[in-house]
Design a protein around this nucleic acid. Structure first.
Length: 121
DNA sequence: CTGATGACTATAG
DNA sequence: CCTATAGCCATCA
């Protein structure tokens, strides 16, 4: 794996770490904030490649529709829905009300992150 | 190199 | 709401 790709993963993970507890974001949203155009699938790829021992709240990432990306009934599906419930995010039939729980980072919050560190690639 | 795959999304019917 | 389709692009075999 190249350096650039590793940094891209880091950026994705860092973005997801910024999602506050009790809120969620979509894959496309994470990609956009991380500065990756049309990168929804890459966000999924990055999460799939999460190293063990990470502290990334991957369960706060959902599809744009608010649906959990895993197949209903799978272990991952159950784990994600349980983790979200524990944080106070209501799950109904494997879906979340994005209107209510979607993370909308403030402009301040975005500026607070030094963009210089992102442009190194 | 090449083709298949997927933790995606938007659009159309 | 559901299915089908078509883009998408890093990974992986």
């Amino acid at each position: 794996m190249s350096q650039i790709q590793a940094q891209r993963f880091d950026r994705i993970w860092a973005t997801i770490r910024d999602i506050p507890e009790g809120l969620v974001a979509s894959y496309g949203q994470i990609a956009e904030i991380a500065g990756i155009v049309r990168g929804a699938r890459q966000v999924g790829t990055a999460l799939r490649c999460l190293p063990s021992g990470h502290n990334v709240p991957w369960h706060r990432v959902l599809q744009a529709s608010g649906t959990i990306a895993f197949q209903k009934g799978s272990d991952k599906f159950d784990e994600q829905s349980e983790r979200l419930s524990k944080e106070g995010v209501a799950i109904l039939e494997g879906k979340v009300n994005m209107r209510k729980y979607c993370w909308q980072p403030d402009l301040d919050e975005l500026l607070w992150k030094p963009r210089d560190a992102w442009d190194e690639e």
